Simulated scan of single mutants.
Amino acid sequence: MLVFEQLCLHRFTMPLKFPFQNSTTTVTEKKVLIVELIDPAGTRGYGECVAFDAPWYTEETIETAQHIIANHIWPMIKTQTISHPNELNLSPIRRNHMAKTAIEGAVWDLYAKKQRQPLYQVIGGRTNQVPVGAAIGIQPDYSTLSHKIQQALNKGFQRIKLKVKPGYDIKILEQVRRDYPDLSLMVDANSAYTLQEIDHLKQFDYFNLLMIEQPLAADDFLEHAVLQQQIKTPICLDESIHTLEDVKVALTLKSCQVISIKLAKVGGFRQAITIHDYCQEQGIPVWCGGMLEAGIGRAQSLALATLPNFYYPADPGPSNRYWQKDIIQPEIEMEHGIIKLPDHPGIGYQVELPPSQSECLDSN
C-alpha cells in the first residue's frame, strides 16, 4: 500500500548552458520545483514541475503550481491509502496538469521503488533504450545554426527539430536542405502562424519534413484541419493536446497526423498512457516532446518514451546538453543517439538537489 506521511517542495533556479529561443520567448534559466513524497518507512518518491515562471506556454507557472500542490492537492491526498498510482484521484481539481504531474510522478517513483522495479517497466515499457533527437532554437544567423546542427549530428542525435517563425523559416530551410539533404528534420512553430498565411505554409512541403509542430493557435482544431487538407507535411499537435478528449477531437476532425505527448502537459502518466494507447489503436504515431526538464522530469519523460507507439526520437536528451550540473547522479548520458535508462528501482537515478527554498508538510 502507498501511504503519504510527508510532502516536501524544493524550489531553486538552474541556468541553461545556452539560451533557448522559440517563436515567443527566450529562456536563459529555469526555475525548478521538485516534489518529494515520503512514506512511513522513509521511502522517497520524486516528481518535477516543469512549468515556466511566466504563463507563455500554458496558464500554469511555478508559483501557481506550488500553491495548488501545497494548498489543494496535498490536503486531498495526505489521507489517501492506495495500492497503485492509478488509484490516485485528483479529478476534483480542474486542469493544473503540471502541478498534478509533479505529484503523480512522485507517487509513481515511490511505487516503483517499493516494487523494486524501474519506472519504465512498471508503466509498461518494453525496452530501456530511447532514441533521441536534438531541438535547436532560433539562431542569430545561418552560420551559427549550421554549426549547431553539425555538432548535434556529430554527437549522434537521430533527428533535428528547428524552431521556426515568420521571417525565420523558408530561407533557413532552403539553406539547411542545401547542406543537409538527407537530414531527418522537423520544425516547431509554437503557434506562430495563422491560416491567412496558408500559401506561405504550403512552401514547407518542399523540404521533406517529418512534421510541422503546432503551426496555428493552441486552441484551434478546426483551422489545423483546414491546413492539413491543404499541405502534405504532417501536422503534429502539441500545445493543443491536454486530454484524451483533445486527441479525439483532433483525430475526428483530421487536424493532424502526429500527436506530441508531453507528460507534464497532459497531467501525468495515467493520462499519457491512455492517450498513447488510444493513438496506437487509431494508427497515429506519437512522440515525446521536451520541456527543458531537470533530471527528474527528464528521466520520467524518457521512461514514458519507452512505450511502443513512440515512433519518433524523443526530445529530452542527455543532461549535459542543457545543464552544467544536473540534479541526478549519474547524469543522463547518450551514446550513438540512444539513452539507456538504468534498471535500478524508480527513476533509477540518485537525486542530489542544490540549495533550495524548501517547504515540508506533514500528514497530521
Rank of each mutant, 00 (worst) to 15 (best):
T252Q: 04
D238W: 01
S255R: 08
H224L: 04
I231K: 13
L253Y: 08
L195F: 02
D199K: 13
A225C: 08
K248A: 00
P215C: 02
A217P: 00
D219I: 08
S240K: 11
F207Q: 03
I212P: 14
L253M: 12
C236I: 12
E223G: 02
M211S: 10
T243Q: 01
Q196W: 07
L237S: 12
L253F: 12
H242G: 00
D199T: 13
Y206L: 05
I212D: 15
S240D: 09
L237I: 13
L222I: 02
L227V: 06
Q203T: 07
D199Q: 13
I198T: 14
D246I: 03
F221T: 00
A218C: 09
F204N: 08
Q196T: 06
L222A: 09
D219Y: 07
L222Q: 05
E213R: 06
Q228H: 12
V226P: 01
L237K: 11
T243K: 00
K248T: 01
L253P: 08
T194L: 04
Y206A: 08
L209A: 07
T243C: 00
L244F: 00
T252I: 00
D199E: 15
L209T: 04
H200L: 06
L251K: 04
T243N: 03
L244I: 09
P215W: 01
H242W: 04
Y193H: 10
E245D: 13
C236A: 15
D238S: 06
Q228I: 07
I241K: 10
F221L: 05
Q229W: 14
P215N: 09
E245I: 03
H200R: 02
L195H: 00
I241Y: 12
L216P: 14
D219R: 10
A217S: 00
K248D: 03
Q229I: 13
L195V: 02
Q230C: 15
D238N: 04
E197N: 14
P234R: 07
D219K: 12
L195E: 02
L251W: 04
H224M: 06
L227W: 10
L244T: 05
